[in-house]
Amino acid sequence: MEDMLLYSSLSLLLLVIAFKLFIQARTKHKHLPPSSPSLPILGHLHLVKRPLHRYLHSLSQTYGQVFSLQFGSRLVVVVSSPSAVEECFTKNDVIFANRPRSLAGKYFGYNHTTVVSAPYGDHLRNLRRISALEILSSNRLNMFTSIRRDEVKHLLKHLLCKLSRNSSQDFAKVELKSLLSELTFNIIMRMVAGKRYYGYGEAVKGEKEARQFREIMKEIVAIARKPGPGQFVPMLRWIDYGGLEKRMMGLSKRMDEFMQGLIDEKRGKEGNTMIDHLLSLQRSQPEYYTD
């Protein structure tokens, strides 16, 4: 009887909280664009289907080119009208410049301090300025043209080898998705740290380090594809539903150790990578370019 009373009380409490949150959401956002019926706490999460863009397109056929959805505790406004999109990113760009706080931003974005996850403000504007001037300027990108050209050659050579192995046939079937992903990672990491971590048959220097990088990237992509309900329903995050937060904490530590190793390796050396350049800026302005 005591157990039954306890569970009944907890269930009643959850229902009261859910109803209160539902009423607050309805009254707080009275002037929202049209929306389909939703559930308390979950909102429209139970209705989401993959591929997401087709699901959103089907909703736009019913509710118009601007409509709202509730993903758990998060309000989402979907805009598919070109004129409305232009207005969002010109006249009202500052209003929409902020980013929602997420577990990924906390653990992979150093508590929302990176250019990808930082909230709009002085810190983000400073990061954008550094990126535009010191990392992604036309002059600096042109310095890495040879890297991009070399990696494309590696990919083409790999494709030709595959074709020659199937020379008895008129064509060879090749899965390009993974190859293009590896091409992108190799270009980025050669620009950032001067290293390539993916190989097309040939050996990669520092295989242990390369394997570590590949495993970290694979896990990050897997988590990004399935963010988990705890990202949208705070109540589930309290109990770490599915162990997502624990997994993120472990992966964050591994990622941090890996990147710190790259930086420590570059300290005191002269090179032509983005890490080298940022370290040179730190040496000239240590009070500005802190660790």
Rank of each mutant, 00 (worst) to 15 (best):
R125Y: 01
H112R: 00
V192T: 15
S168W: 05
P100I: 01
G268L: 11
I216M: 07
S131I: 03
Y197P: 12
K195W: 08
G271I: 11
R214H: 00
E219H: 07
S35E: 13
F67G: 02
R267N: 06
G243D: 06
L45E: 06
F171H: 09
S181A: 11
K30V: 11
H57R: 11
S181I: 07
E257M: 11
L160A: 13
L10E: 09
R247Y: 03
T27Y: 14
I41Q: 07
S38D: 14
A222C: 02
L21H: 12
V152D: 03
M189Y: 04
S38M: 09
I187G: 01
Q212D: 05
E2T: 13
I275C: 06
G121A: 03
Y110V: 00
R283F: 06
R247N: 08
Y241L: 14
V233Q: 06
F96L: 10
K106A: 03
Y288A: 09
R54T: 07
L176V: 09
T114M: 05
L236A: 03
L279E: 10
S178R: 12
L136Q: 04
L279A: 08
A104D: 02
E202V: 06
K153V: 13
L52Y: 08
A25C: 09
R140M: 02
L127T: 01
C161V: 00
K195T: 07
L13A: 15
R283S: 15
K30R: 15
G242N: 11
H44L: 10
E87M: 08
I23G: 05
E182R: 10
A222D: 11
L127N: 04
H277R: 07
G250S: 08
R254K: 15
I216W: 06
Y289R: 05
Q24T: 10
H29G: 10
S60P: 03
